[in-house]
Design a protein around this nucleic acid. Structure first.
Lengths: 127, 127
DNA sequence: CTGGGACCTCAACCGGGCTTGAGGTCAAGC
DNA sequence: GCTTGACCTCAAGCCCGGTTGAGGTCCCAG
């Protein structure tokens, strides 16, 4: 079991297609060494980075923000526990605010739909 | 006060830019008559249609779906009260399900962040 | 009748998060 | 040595909801 993995292995083990991995790399979220033949080789910690990226993505965090926080790690480093805790705290807040926003919209909508108005002067939905 | 309005008036009164109004028209969400000089003239009911579109948009409903429901009205018709009630019922459900989904993600995330795992076998976030 | 603001069309571009394809190279097994 | 599959780059395309710009026309007030 080599200490480095190819892009195919990374794709298989993370469930993320090659194309997306190359894209992440182009965005600076992950990094690779190149072999003499110009092929990518990843350290195994990259698996964790990819997991971190997918988890964030799943929460609706834009890649650019994920990049910002991953930039705080060494380029070949996996997220540590402390790192994960800080990020998750921040994302939890992000999720909460998205939920709040939707709930506020829903409540306003409920009042508005009740009145059936849909007019320009008076319908709270059309702010 | 003319029974018809220009695109500039529609833009001013609805708060939606010309470009977006032309785009809505290209998508079949609103309709216009053309003058001899090829300029658009809208019936006033179009203001309501635009309000309807913006309200839906605000709720996160894709334009294509808004188009589907607006297609049930005559091309120059404003949404009626009954129409609005049916649509709002449907959108309310849409909003509820989005909120549910986010809450489920949040709960799962909260459990996962608590364990700090971020591993591939066992982390619920990486399904 | 003229000036200028409102209007027209069509095409290109934006961001986000990739995918797809063309055309070429690398590496491992037989 | 040859085949085959995994890999490479770069460019273009997709979806969504528009915006921006170029180049041209309409129409109304003075």
């Amino acid at each position: 079991m080599s200490p480095e993995i190819t892009i195919g292995e990374l794709a298989d083990r993370s469930g993320v297609p090659h194309s997306a991995l190359r894209f992440y790399e182009s965005q600076g979220l992950i990094h690779s060494r190149r072999t003499a033949g110009n092929q990518r080789r990843y350290v195994r910690a990259t698996l964790r980075r990819v997991a971190f990226i997918r988890a964030a993505h799943h929460l609706g965090i834009p890649l650019s923000q994920v990049g910002e926080v991953l930039a705080l790690l060494p380029s070949d480093g996996a997220p540590t526990r402390e790192f994960w805790e800080r990020a998750s705290h921040c994302w939890r807040a992000h999720l909460d605010s998205r939920i709040d926003r939707l709930e506020r919209i829903r409540d306003r909508f409920t009042r508005c739909a009740g009145c059936g108005c849909l007019s320009f002067d008076g319908c709270a939905l059309l702010d």
